[in-house]
Design a protein around this nucleic acid. Structure first.
Length: 909
RNA sequence: GCGAGUGUGGCGGAACUGGCAGACGCGCUGGUCUUAGGAACCAGUCCUUCGGGGUGCAGGUUCGAUUCCUGUCACUCGCACCA
């Protein structure tokens, strides 16, 4: 009676074995080529979800595969452990965030280990531990030294009832997610990193990232938002009263435009309501009161709400006029909600005829709409009023009504007008970025404290390096409201490192993105107590060869990490420009969900909807190997994956099938142990050509599978098709095994026939065993436990090794997957070399050729390979095909296309 | 709005540089075995009026299009203080 596939015992056994032998520990090795496989580290939310399982399974396959290929593989894991949920849990459960976090990590670490992921646990990193955040603080100070850190007032979402700062997501619709009070913008002192100083580099270096999905690069490009244009200055009309305008702010309004060619179409100027000039321009004018009221209305509204699609454009005239620097025309100055202070100069020129936003605004307020660019192929009547213009034309065209620029192409005019403005000192070519500086301060407890001291005498003073880490206080009271860190009686008090006087300690903590922007560097040297990382360690391991994670991190995390690496490079701490060589963005794990309206839809698994499947449940019912196999088989990694319980069962069935195949082979006398008398040397020395057709076919399939799986795993990351190829091989081995079963030996043949038969059978057995070994090795990265177990079983099957004599030692090596070298039950399958396929084994004896008439398949023929490859012979074949001849009857052959080895297409009329 | 992506059986998905559409798996149908259920195994499974027709829809390029081009429709995702 064959033992059952007992995944529980097997998985436990091998996990213990790997742990005991330190199978996944890794260190720098000058001889080996390194490979750094990295999954985005998890937030310790409590338990793993299927998205984690998918992410880590993908990376584990790559890590194990590369290792079998002989690479020195770094495959680490850690915890992105700071963040708001821990604080919320602290308030709810009256438990310190640290305790909540560490117990979550404890549980999730167990879950990861249960999945058999090949992490080097000695390198585990936890961002909320002082040993780690000490270096996060150090990095902050390094940036500070470089002048990349500054503090200024900035608007934050503030909930007056909770007395706290909210993230945008917590303030959706302008309402606090917890108490539903309406959120206001509050101006507070905030810490920023000058990421904008790197805008150009962050944009340009995207070119270097050949291994990144185009989609992510496009998102980053848009995010950085480079635009070339001209900063144009409009003089404020001289004959108006200038009382309010100070010398510093000047008497001009600067606007930024990418369409300087439309300058003659300007019919008004608009300032953002918060623009510093506004107040001065209206001071002591009849407009002062109304403008103040208007500005007040928009002060409390956050930008997101103000710029949303459905928000009506609103504005008002402020009683002043500007002068168009090229046309000399007077244009009224307005303020409006659709102009943002943060972008460009906080002011725009209104060109209703050629900008759809301006068009909407001008239409609403009855402002002039002047057409200055003619859409190609269209004509414009006399009179450039509002009549006839139904929508803004935003394209290029011929210049009209633009003084001496009329008649030019708009592209030409752009240059000419920019030149002229520059000559007049009224404009300058400028590049603008949408990217803004990174606000890293959080008025929260559970984060790395910003290592600064605010001294009344010396100002902002960095904490000296030797005083790091600035530890999070533990004498904290957790309750709804203000930053809990302020409840510590001692934390806020500090001695100024500069003057020794009494000072205040900064109580803001850092954005958790800061912690996760350098963890991949720490993995290279995780226990270093004297530095964040040693330069030679990062020099060896960096860059990350393959980074895998959800596309939700396409912008922020990946941009911040790129920025920090560049900044650290400029501080002399790392030698690379970019951290992540190749990036794979995996899709979401979805499941069907019955909506209220009775329709079933497939959406992302979420607790809220209740369509989740717990990894723990699947692992305990089917095992880690099945869970991994299914999640890799159900869809290619970058696509969304639909969870299907039946599909999981299918994968479980497949593993059982592999299990039985191996055990049956072990038990039913395949292999040399079955021989009653030794097969003579000569008869055992098979040449490939001496193998019978079926055996050759199986051998061919084995090598074709090696080729496909290697390509699918190593190059395409299409694990689903790799797995299906192995399934096909298993199906074929099953059929083949039945054919050559030793039980078929009737013993009725004559002596020589018997010998011949046995020789053939032994060749068959050898190929079968080789096939099974191949299956196990190819499956090992996906389902490591069962592969390891069955590899051990195969160690008990004696190898005939007859095929060893079929070629050179190298060829032998690749032909006999992991046989030879006296494979013993003690040898791990992961010590095996990843197999290489043999070209000569791939060649098929017969090839299926398709015959088409006018592009439609009419016949197929299985032809010997030489015939199939010969164009001449294929042409001849056609005349022998009755079906083709019949369809050609009475018609003239126009031409015949022959694709050797594939098809023949006859075009007839 | 701006930007990106995806549309193939009952379902998840294959088809790599244009060359047999539907690999592999699920589900379903019939059978073998079984007291029965399950498991396992075997056969079948796009539609069809048997001519042929089929890859969201309409065109185009080509001997030949799921693949390339143009237009169109539908859906999905991203767009600044959660992680």
């Amino acid at each position: 009676m064959m033992e059952k596939y007992n995944f529980e015992d097997i998985e436990r056994k091998w996990q213990e074995e790997w742990h005991a032998s330190g199978a996944h520990r890794v260190r720098e090795d000058a001889d080996g080529e390194k490979y750094y496989a990295l999954a985005m580290f998890p937030y310790p939310s409590g338990r793993l979800h299927m998205g984690h399982v998918r992410n880590y399974s993908i990376v584990d396959v790559l890590a194990r595969y590369k290792k079998m290929q002989g690479y020195n593989v770094l495959h680490p894991i850690g915890w992105d452990a700071f963040g708001l949920p821990a604080e919320n849990a602290a308030i709810k459960n009256q438990m310190p965030p640290a305790q909540w976090t560490y117990s979550n990590i404890e549980h999730m670490r167990g879950q990861l280990q249960r999945l058999g992921l090949s992490y080097d646990w000695d390198r585990e990193v936890t961002t909320c531990r002082p040993e780690y955040y000490r270096w996060t603080q150090w990095i902050f100070l390094e940036l500070y030294k470089q002048g990349l850190v500054y503090r200024r007032e900035a608007n934050v979402n503030w909930c007056p009832s909770c007395a706290t700062v909210l993230a945008n997501e917590q303030a959706e619709g302008g309402v606090c997610e917890r108490c539903e009070a309406s959120v206001e913008l509050r101006s507070l002192e905030q810490w920023f990193l000058k990421i904008t100083e790197y805008s150009e580099q962050l944009l340009n270096d995207l070119e270097k990232l050949r291994g990144w999905p185009e989609k992510v690069k496009t998102m980053q490009r848009n995010w950085i938002g480079r635009s070339e244009g001209v900063r144009v200055e409009f003089e404020i009309e001289a004959d108006t009263d200038m009382r309010g305008v100070s010398a510093e702010t000047g008497t001009r309004i600067a606007v930024f435009t990418t369409r300087v060619d439309t300058l003659f179409g300007v019919s008004y100027l608009v300032l953002a309501p918060e623009h510093p000039l506004v107040e001065e321009l209206v001071r002591e004018t009849p407009y002062e009161r109304d403008v103040a009221a208007f500005v007040q209305r928009f002060k409390g509204v956050n930008e997101q709400a103000r710029t949303a699609d459905d928000v009506e454009k609103e504005g008002m005239f402020i009683g002043r006029c500007g002068i168009n620097p090229l046309s000399g025309e007077r244009v009224p100055i307005w303020i409006a909600n659709y102009v943002l202070l943060q972008y460009g100069t906080g002011a725009v020129m209104g060109v209703p005829a050629h900008d759809s936003r301006d068009f909407a605004f001008a239409t609403k307020y009855g402002l002039d709409i002047r057409c200055v660019i003619l859409e190609p192929g269209k004509e414009l009547g006399e009179g450039q009023g509002r009549q006839g213009v139904r929508e803004a034309y935003c394209g290029e065209g011929k210049m009209i009504h633009s003084g001496r620029f009329s008649g030019m192409e708009s592209g030409e005019a752009k240059d000419a007008m920019a030149d002229e403005l520059e000559g007049l000192g009224r404009g300058i070519r400028q590049v603008n970025y949408r990217l803004r500086d990174w606000l890293i301060s959080r008025q929260r407890y559970w984060g790395a404290p910003i290592p600064m001291v605010l001294c009344p005498k010396c100002g902002d003073v960095p904490v000296p390096e030797e005083q790091l880490p600035v530890l999070l206080p533990e004498d904290i009271e957790f309750k709804q409201g203000e930053n809990p860190i302020k409840s510590s009686p001692s934390f806020g008090e500090a001695v100024c490192p500069c003057c020794g006087g009494k000072a205040r300690r900064e109580t803001d903590t850092m954005d958790t993105f800061m912690c996760s922007s350098w963890y991949f560097l720490r993995y290279c040297d995780p226990r270093n107590e004297g530095a964040a990382f040693a330069r030679d360690k990062t020099a060896y391991w960096m860059n990350v060869d393959q980074y895998v994670g959800g596309v939700e991190h396409a912008i922020m995390h990946l941009l911040y990490a790129r920025f920090l690496v560049k900044a650290l490079r400029d501080c002399g701490h790392v030698g690379v420009d970019e951290p992540f060589e190749n990036l794979l963005t995996q899709g979401m794990v979805c499941k069907d969900y019955l909506r209220d309206d009775g329709r079933t839809v497939v959406v992302k698994m979420s607790k809220k909807l209740g369509n989740v499947v717990s990894p723990e449940d699947i692992v305990s019912r089917f095992g880690a190997d099945t869970a991994r196999l299914f999640i890799l088989f159900a869809a290619p990694p970058e696509r969304d994956l639909e969870w299907n319980d039946h599909g999981v069962e299918g994968c479980y069935r497949f593993l059982n099938r592999v299990w039985r195949l191996v055990l049956e082979v072990r038990d039913s006398g395949f292999g040399a142990s079955n021989s009653h008398e030794p097969v003579s040397h000569e008869s055992a020395d098979y040449a490939l050509s001496a193998l019978d057709g079926d055996t050759r076919k199986v051998l061919q399939r084995i090598h074709a599978t090696i080729k496909k799986v290697t390509h699918d795993v190593g190059t395409r990351f299409n694990f689903n098709t790799a797995i299906s190829a192995v399934m096909e091989l298993v199906n074929e081995l099953y059929l083949y095994k039945k054919d050559i079963s030793p039980l078929k030996d009737s013993g009725l043949e004559s002596g020589s026939e018997k010998l011949q038969g046995r020789v053939a059978r032994e060749a068959g057995s050898a190929v079968l065993i080789q096939g099974i070994r191949t299956v196990l090795v190819l499956l090992a990265p996906f389902v490591p436990h069962i592969a390891e177990e069955l590899w051990q079983v195969m160690g008990q099957v004696k190898d005939i090794s007859s095929l060893n004599k079929a070629g050179s030692p190298e060829a032998r090596d690749s032909l006999n997957v992991g046989s030879s070298k006296g494979s013993t039950p003690q040898t791990s399958i992961f010590a095996e070399k990843w197999p290489r396929y043999r070209e000569d084994c791939l060649e098929e004896e017969e090839v299926m050729i398709v015959f088409q008439v006018n592009g439609k398949v009419r016949d197929r023929l299985l032809l010997p390979a030489e015939v199939a490859r010969s164009e001449g012979e294929l042409r001849e074949c056609v005349s022998e095909l009755p079906r083709v001849q019949q369809l050609m009857g009475g018609k003239t052959v126009v031409k015949t296309i022959v694709v050797p080895g594939k098809l023949v297409n006859i075009v007839v009329k």
